[in-house]
Structures are given as structure tokens and as C-alpha cells.
Amino acid sequence: MAVVRQLMGLPISVDIRDGELRHAEQVFQWLHEVDLRFSPFREDSEVTRLGRGELRANEISGDLRHVLSLCETYEQRSGGAFKARLPGRHLDPNAIVKGWAVQRASSMLREMGLRRFCINAGGDVVTAGEPTDGQPWRVGIRHPDNGTQLTAVLGVRDGAVATSAAYERGHHIIDGRTGLPALGLLSMTVYAADLTTADATATAAFAMGADGPEWAAAQPGCMVHAVDSRYRVFVSPELPVLG
């Protein structure tokens, strides 16, 4: 059973092999709640209200406090290339929120007893088990110049894959050290055990530019596939690329 909905400004699919429609609906309900609370584009969201100074740090939810803590962690790890609050811009923790929220949805399904599913949030994917016995979930990495071609296909079991790139939204990722668009990479894909780690690491690495792939590959539990602006490809030897 696979269901697709438009949420958080992108298509989200829930493919469940050992559950029911109600399980997918609970995922979408959670992600809708996250969008209402965390979107920097909603005037009444918790994130927007905090950014405007209407909420104090001791008045925000535990979830937002956790997300902001993750933002601080990746800002420190990336040497400031990743930032949730850039000079002259509103607070925007979206680079952490999506991966965190979808990973939480995966945990919800596991708590319900499901063991075979895949959630795909605009190309950022978290998986559990296998779709059929003996076969991994197949996760494609898009060619940075051609949406009809793949540069690689990963075989994923109980893992997550996230990609940051310029091909969908242009150079929207900013290098927090300079305040300018990050230009050194065309795509940055990270494979990790959970989507929170994969998504945050991919975004931070893309913001770092040419130094990003090596930095990301050195992060605990992370493997990478990256294409730089000169079309050179960096691949971790252990990455589960299918032949």
C-alpha cells in the first residue's frame, strides 16, 4: 500500500508492506501538525513567533527546543557553514525539521508494530526492513543535470538517505560563513541510520561547498555520494550501491 500527499511544500509518500491505511494517515497527521508548528512561512507558527520575539526561550515546546539544539550542534560541527538564523533573515530551522519529523514518523510506525515501510519526503527517504524478502529498498540518486537519469541506486534496509542539491530550487542553500549561496557542489547525498542525521549532514555539507564531502564522510555513521561543480564524484567505499 502506497499513499502520496502534498505536505510541507513537497510530495510525501508512505509505502507500507505490513500495515493499513490508518497507519499512513497517522504519519500524514503528524507531518501536518509539524508544518503548522514549525513552518517559517506561517505567521502563527511557533517558529515564526519565536523569530519575531513573541515567545521567550522558556516558553517554546520541547520539540522546538530539541530542533534548535540540533541546529546549534550542526552549526558547530560545520564551522558555521550551517546556520538556522542568517543575518537579515528570519529563523528557519527547516533543514533540520524535515528529517527530524520524518524520522519521528518512522519511529511512530515502529511503535505500532510495523517493520516493512518506506517514507519518501521529496527525495529524502527513511526505510524499515525489506519490501519483499531478500530485497532492499531501492533509493535512486538523481543526476544533477537530468531529472530522468540516475547517477546511482542504493540498496537500503533500516536506513535513511538524504540529498541536498541545487537542481530543484536553485542555489537556495546559504553558506553561513559568508552569507552567500553555496556553489561548490551540485549534489550531496548522505546515507545514515536515521534521517535526522542524514538530512542535517547533507545540508551542512552542501553549505560547506568543496570541503563538504570529506567532512560528511568523517561524521559518525555517515556515507556519502557527492558531485562537485566540476562533475567530480566522491563516493564512500562502503556505500551500498547496487550494480
Rank of each mutant, 00 (worst) to 15 (best):
Q6V: 13
A216T: 10
T201H: 01
C71N: 07
R56I: 02
D124R: 02
P93V: 12
P40D: 13
L183P: 04
P136A: 12
R42F: 12
C118A: 12
G184R: 04
C71P: 10
G80H: 07
E59G: 04
T203P: 02
K98S: 12
R232E: 11
S107W: 10
G122T: 09
E75R: 12
L36C: 11
L185T: 12
L64E: 09
D211P: 07
V27T: 06
E20Y: 01
P181A: 10
A105T: 09
T203A: 00
E33T: 14
L154N: 04
L7Y: 05
L180C: 06
H225W: 14
G147E: 08
L195G: 04
S107H: 11
E43M: 06
V14W: 01
L154F: 02
R169N: 15
E130D: 07
G80C: 04
V139I: 15
E111W: 00
A152L: 13
G221L: 07
W30K: 12
E75Y: 04
M1Q: 11
T73C: 07
E214V: 14
G99V: 09
W100D: 04
A166L: 15
D44M: 06
A57L: 14
G129V: 02
T197A: 01
R104E: 10
V102F: 03
S45G: 08
L68N: 04
F82Y: 07
L7V: 15
P11H: 01
S69M: 12
L55R: 01
G243D: 13
M1F: 05
H143Q: 06
S236V: 07
S106R: 14
T148V: 12
E43P: 00
A210V: 13
I60S: 11
L86F: 00
T48R: 13
T163H: 02
A204I: 04
L183W: 03
H66W: 03
G53D: 00
A95Y: 03
Y74I: 14
G179M: 05
P11A: 09
P237L: 07
A84C: 14
A166K: 13
D133V: 09
L183A: 11
R5Q: 12
P213Y: 02
V126W: 02
D158W: 08
